[in-house]
Simulated assay, not measured.
Amino acid sequence: MYGGPPAGTISPVTSPYAQSGYRVGFDWGPAGAAAVPGALVAVVDVLSFTTSVTVAADRGITVLPYRWRDSTAIQYAEQHAAALAVGRSEAGADGISLSPASIRQARNVERLVLPSPNGSTISQQLADSGSTVLAVSLRNAAAAAEWATAKGRQIVVIAAGERWADGSLRPAVEDLWGAGAFITALQERGVGPVSPEARAAAAAWREVRAELPGLLRECAGGRELIQYGFPQDVAVAAEVGSSASVPVLRAGAFVVD
């Protein structure tokens, strides 16, 4: 029979899923973002939303996350005097899409509405939560960890994942690695305690980091983009530590703090 936690462990909380008592927590998707509250939340969507946000930030482009690419997104972009990213297949050689490579080559764009069913949706969900929201990818994990460490606040890391055809969550290993890279960088700066879930993500990153970018090309998400003709997006996502930008969601837009 269960007799309570061992001496010295975290006390029971109202929700066992909240990872209460830890400075750093980790979970998946919109439901995880709702279940594990944090003063500071790092959203990780390596292929490709948060990678695209860091590329935009490096170029001085403000990104407005939006859930859906539909008629309401067109109106939203018009209301905010912003360009609207289109689907990868619609963008052509010069258009802007969720593809980080397309954002890197964009010209005369200062504000960009970037719809995405995963990272963008979670970011918008968190916009009114009172949490400070960061966009984190493999490109800026170290810089974001440095920024977050200085804030001295509770940190939750949300791996966006993907969706199966039935709408259920597909945990995307590249997001696990991106979350783990950020958590590892926090640990290296002495940030803790780290929840068991967050420790598992960090362990996953340490297992593979010496084998990137190869493993990013070989994982399901990487293979999918390469199969659809976007190998350059996988290459950009694999630029580990290349960005010093830390995009922070303020008033509905990711800006460099």
Rank of each mutant, 00 (worst) to 15 (best):
M1K: 10
T9I: 01
I10L: 10
V13I: 00
T14D: 12
G25F: 03
D27F: 11
A33M: 06
G38F: 05
V43T: 00
T50L: 07
T51Y: 08
V53P: 02
R59Q: 13
P65W: 09
R69Y: 15
R69I: 10
D70G: 13
S71G: 15
A81G: 15
S89G: 06
G92I: 07
I96L: 13
S97R: 10
R104K: 13
Q105C: 03
A106I: 05
E110A: 13
R111M: 11
L112S: 08
N118I: 05
G119V: 02
Q125M: 14
L126E: 11
A127Y: 07
S129T: 15
S129R: 13
S131P: 09
S131L: 10
L138G: 02
N140F: 08
N140V: 09
A144I: 06
W147E: 13
K151F: 05
I155Q: 02
I155H: 03
A160E: 05
W164I: 10
W164M: 15
D166S: 12
G167A: 05
V173M: 10
A181G: 05
E188R: 10
G190R: 00
P193K: 06
W205N: 01
W205Y: 11
R209E: 08
G214P: 00
G222T: 06
V236G: 04
A238M: 09
G241F: 07
G241E: 08
S243G: 08
L249M: 09
D257A: 15
